[in-house]
Design a protein around this nucleic acid. Structure first.
Lengths: 229, 229, 229, 229
DNA sequence: TATGAATGAGCTTTCATTCAT
DNA sequence: AATGAATGAAAGCTCATTCAT
């Protein structure tokens, strides 16, 4: 994104379900479609939806600006390129999830409680921002090499923090160490990233249900004791 | 794929195996169908590698045929479209995985053994065909609506079979039913599909290692007994 | 067409209505679709239908051979090119119409009777071979320059013969010469060539009706006497 | 045509008026929209000439834009497709001819005078726009099904108006009704549409000559009285 | 007499981006 | 802060024709 613009787009729920993940930050809720928020905000919101729906490469800049009700000139005034729009979405998602994880990991309580809370929270957040989740796991390779590296590094830091809780529990004997912490983390986040391929808001389970079940599965898998044959 | 061609491409795993771009310069012309298998076979192999490396939309037909050492006309002689190439890859993967799962599920042994074997096998197979795995979870939305439906149906059948083992164990009391079988299955296959985002053949773990760990995590999560808080 | 093949395709009616213009030449009437007559005959028949339906440029050789139930190799065995197919159609039409006109023009009877018969006959024949008529007026420019010249020359001979009857009548005082014979002929054949744009076999008028009306209009326009203001 | 552009191209007749292929080499840049009218206007003019010369399918978009001295992007900025260009030509011709006929038909004077004037006028107009006339009768089937229907409907309205004059004369006894008015109209417009296949501006007759002769033939054919045998 | 794989040139269309205003 | 005409490169696909068999 071009320097000098503070955009701070609020998170938007998956495909139309407005489930703000951070409702406190929602300023004006009286926005008819097409004129909500500032121009860059609108562009980012529209791009997120379209990228999730049709994929980055199949979404044209023309379509984005038409849907946002602005012109190409306006878009190129705020963003360097179409890639920039995608990079901005990644930045926003990473920042949000990192912030939440840091708060939980540094909180009080036993490590199993903190890990459980973090595991459930990332599920709930991923569901609340299903479009972001879809884009995240599907469009990484469409980012520039430079930006891909940035994203991967940031992601690694996130995984490290999560992993440090697993290791803490293993060292304390609260979790089994039959499976290396690295693998546990990749195992779990694979499940989380794939939520967008099967979760439907109108379906049987709420985001909280799924968060609870996923956390349960993780914690139970880490229970010490004789392995299941 | 156009009717009347039996292609039977064998699964190929890793990336980077070069295919001469200019087979005209190939002196050993004793191979009647080019430098590496028949033309459609070569096209499918090359397309798999390129789609996994760069994504479907970023791989041009020109690039595919140049790499396979044929012309566009030849490609369109065997395949209806670029989409058809992708569809063929999906068909091949689905058939292979379904066949393996059916064999394992109908085998002898306790349900926990069969589930564990199936869980490990799908990991090993996914790693042996990492390109296929990458394409599978990333390119579904680039298939035609019709073909997408077919793939999803076939995939559902696969999940059903896997789920039936989970349920069998839950009813027998071998597995806990704290988490619904549906969610267990989606949880596990999320992890499996995402193997391609982190697994590196040159890394610390063999495919069998990972298969063992993943199966272990699944079975342990299903162990009956008091839940971990 | 390649030398050495006698094809002698019988005329076929417009779009499915088998109204052979020259029924005496029809040898075998027991032909299931797809195997009627010799290969070149079938190709010509199929090409005629498709060229009339979709236009020359929009009909692919593949489509022609598929419909005729043969392969491309077979087609190129009998015809030099796709253009050759079209040229053959023109040759056939021209020959047929010229033969008929020569017979009528050299017959007995008053010039007005002969002109009327010729005028009606060309209408009936054009309707009986509506596909040919459609192709004739629409595809001339798709012929090679060489073949175009041939067709135009042949056409000129045909017009000359028709015109000679008009002039004969004008000189005999049976027809008015208010309008030059040249223009009368172009005027009339414009109407005839356009039959294929409006005439429908299932419609109100039979081919004979239209032939009668067209001949009537021509003869009445040529009646001597005070002009209509 | 894309919404929002008013093009209003004036009708152009003969062929061969060259348009510089390389307007970049045009020093007189005071004309803000290129060397000859606005870009869409130029494209339409060039397309009309080329479609008439070589046929719609044999004229490539590349050829059109090169001749007009613009790029493909520019063309697709103003027109949805190559078909759209053709559709625009049809719209223009239909509108022009309808307007003229309406003016004449609703004018004063006896029906025979009005019919004669209309008959001569359509000839003169068709000759003044020979390219349009060529395209009109030859390319209808290359239009989209939707647009074809529109054109046919508009054409039917035109024919209806012309036919209403014939019927008016027949009912008044000024014209014979030996031949149904429907057939008279199709007969006459066949002749008119085919003008482009034989009329040459450099030839023996002026457009007015031909218009007079054609109208004469029509009116004389409609004269009441004993038919010519 | 016929096959059908393969060619290679050409087609229409899309699109991110620029730039004069 | 914003417009929208124009660019230029590349995309997917079609097709008449050839040729070894």
């Amino acid at each position: 994104m071009k320097r000098g613009f503070a955009v701070a787009v609020r998170a938007r729920g998956g495909r139309g379900r407005g489930t703000p993940a951070n409702p406190a930050a929602d300023p004006a809720a009286t926005d008819p479609a097409g004129s909500e928020g500032s121009v860059p905000r609108r562009l980012l919101a529209v791009a997120t939806r379209l990228f999730a729906e049709k994929g980055f490469d199949r979404t044209s800049v023309q379509e984005i600006v038409d849907t946002a009700g602005v012109t190409k000139g306006a878009m190129y005034h705020y963003f360097d390129s179409k890639d920039d729009l995608l990079a901005e979405i990644y930045t926003r998602v990473l920042r949000m999830q990192m912030t939440r994880l840091e708060r939980i990991a540094s909180g009080p309580g036993a490590v199993s409680e903190r890990l459980g809370e973090a595991a459930a929270d990332v599920v709930v957040t991923s569901i609340a921002n299903l479009d972001d989740t879809t884009i995240f796991f599907r469009s990484l390779h469409q980012l520039s090499a430079r930006k891909q590296r940035e994203v991967r590094n940031e992601r690694r830091r996130y995984h490290e923090l999560f992993r440090s809780m697993v290791i803490e529990g293993q060292q304390a004997g609260v979790f089994t160490d039959r499976v290396p912490a690295d693998i546990v983390v990749d195992f779990y986040f694979g499940s989380v990233h794939h939520l967008s391929t099967w979760y439907r808001p109108e379906g049987e389970w709420s985001a909280t249900d799924v968060g609870g079940h996923y956390a349960r599965l993780l914690l139970d898998a880490l229970r010490p004791g004789a392995p299941q044959t």
